[in-house]
Design a protein around this nucleic acid. Sequence first.
RNA 1: UCCCCGGUAGCUCAAUCGGUAGAGCGGCGGGCUGUUAACCCGUAGGUUGCAGGUUCGAGUCCUGCCCGGGGCGCCA
Length: 457
Amino acid sequence: MSPRQSSSGDGSRNGGFWRRCPMARWVYIEDLKQHVGEEVELRGWLHNKRSSGKIRFLIVRDGTGFVQVVAVKNQVAPEVFARLDDLFYEASIILRGKVREDARAPGGVELDLVDLSVVQNPEDYPIPKVREENIPDVGKLLPLRHLWIRGRRQWAILRIRDEVVRALEDFMHARGFIRLDPPILTAMAVEGTTTLFKIDYFGQPAYLSQSGQLYMEALAMSHGKVYSFGPTFRAEKSKTRRHLAEFWMMEPEWAYATLEDLLDLVEDMLVYVVARVLEQRKTELDILERDTSRLEAIRKPFPRITYDDAVKLLQEKGFDFPFGEDFGADEETAISESFDRPVMVTHYPAKIKAFYMKRDPEQPDRARCVDVLAPEGYGEIIGGSEREEDHDTLVRYIQEHNLPLEPYRWYLDLRKYGTVPHAGFGLGLERTVAWITGIHHVRETIPFPRLLDRIYP
RNA sequence: UCCCCGGUAGCUCAAUCGGUAGAGCGGCGGGCUGUUAACCCGUAGGUUGCAGGUUCGAGUCCUGCCCGGGGCGCCA
């Protein structure tokens, strides 16, 4: 039996509810089209209902989609029909019905109700029936996040998140990278301790990881091409739509690779991920009313510009931008809006970048690095670079950044024993998903966002 | 850390110059055999965030506080 088949149950094994109707097979809404004409069983929740005299329309969701269930008086048992009027939103229900193709239905199929049983009927669901004119504000929705995720938009966003994750993993494996994850508890800072969450580790100070990169460099010297995928933590007091205190990052690290190798990889990767979401998550993009023409434009080649080009671009647009500074949110937006696809900005001034980045031999004040800015003002979704591989140079960089040498002893070992040129990057999952889904704020792209002063639920 | 905006019914919002606190949605009751986050009729629902002040009179003006949102910096 394939994994796919096992997801639809053979009701007879589950006992309880389904013994009552052994002839109807439990199916999921996403599979209904394969059961036209059959009587099937759905197990889900009541999402919405409408009534018109002697006909009732229930919108039922089961996690895989939404479907309309129709009940006409005199065509269903009277006690079943009467039960429908007592149902509240989010009632958990199990129902049997006959699958019928119908051009009027958004998904192409509907169910004619035969029987319905109520698992639980909640009388006071805290999120009101949501209509465009009265969507509660986020201050009220966030404390109800555990219920908010049942909503249509949140459902669509999180399904696309899953697709992005799997697309990234499939792509990396197809390119010969293997997944190996670094520790989350660490004793050292990658870029200084000010933005780290400090914890008590058996009496020793430790931190939640803000990046697994240094460990990934060690793994790259063992496996050549590696990537990690996991949570990272930044104790930044940020209150913007692009920031979370806990977010997920994919961090590839590639031995013997150059900046140019990295740019080619990033380009292929983003093209693949966007195409896969367009192909596999059409329904969800429709729910979100995403302008898919903006996603269809994501093709090779991506523009590659240097920091100097970007500064010139800003100055042409009327920005009073001082050379040598890092771009702020307004600048990133202005740069990205000059292109219809992600723009790769390289060769930033080394002094505004992390200590481990390799300098460009032809311009020693520039780092061999790249920031990828997503279109439509979604900001930086990827940051990467070649890493300095020379031991003594790296020691000097650490000292210049006023970082202690001792915690980096193992990291410096990598440069003492078979050091090679290498490069890697980090991709911010939530920002990438926010861009692809076209939603305004990254907090809706993660199931339970961790924000400044918000850790519940 | 700083700057900006907001807080009125369960939710989203009105309330003119300081002069009787309203509407839509949701709830409840009723109607409708094809609705697409349905529609129609009716109905209940308020310490206007808190504390003070000005005034004949404060949702509205002033002061302080609390809570929320957004932005800056930092970053993915």
